[in-house]
Amino acid sequence: MLKIKDIHKSFGKNEILKGVDLSIDKGDVVVILGPSGSGKTTLLRCINFLETADSGKATFGDLQVDLHDASKKDIHTIRQKTAFVFQNYNLFNNKTAIENVTEGLIIGRKIPKAEANNIGKKALDKVGLSDKYDSYPSLLSGGQQQRVGIARAVALNPDIILFDEPTSALDPELVGEVLTVMKNIANEGTTMLVVTHEMSFAKDVANRVIFMDGGVVVEEGTPHDIFVSPKEERTKKFLKRVLPEDYTFYI
């Protein structure tokens, strides 16, 4: 459904993506792991044209685009097919929870307001915020804000939802509620591409795990392949650093 071919991106002299290929089928939950600075977020942002790649091709269904110089129309089409969940939520602070969710429907997709409100309420119910329709983001906790962010993405009914470290900015005790919501929508068959540091999510929910380092895909496979029998030395090293059972030092 989504294929990315040979994507390159540099910021100044700093080459972040050095030719990444990616292929996602409908219903896949793909998790991208990797140390910070390995290009995971940049990859996601290039797919949604929040950054312009230096080169690379993308295929969405039967739509082919060049990631470097896509037309405005193609960018709009791809943004209609995708939704983005941000690390820092990026809710519209001047809009209530329900308005945050319906903004893209009413303005971006020209759906009538009443219908958009219904979709929006359903999306907020799904993430467990039935009692917060009319709350402004400043009155919500981080976890609640991120759940609104997820509802905003879900309501658009996209072909794929891109999650950019959705729990990294949250207090540890709020991570769980967001992961539960993500698990639920994954179980409904939503196609997801998730950059995260939550190993439990990668293990339990993903059907494919990609390990990136230094701007390239080092290894990919099922969660079992990656976590139990990694082949590459870099993957092993990374897992050793991040997996709790391998902590060998105490304070």
């Binding site: 943004r79 209609q80 941000f86 990026n90 809710l91 903004e103 997709r109």
Partner: peptide
């Protein structure tokens, strides 16, 4: 980020500035 979020849900630059 709010401008990016607006673009990602399909608002044009002009709409994003005016509404958000």
């Amino acid at each position: 980020g709010q401008l990016e979020a607006a673009q990602s849900v399909g608002l044009s630059n002009f709409q994003a500035y005016r509404r958000i």
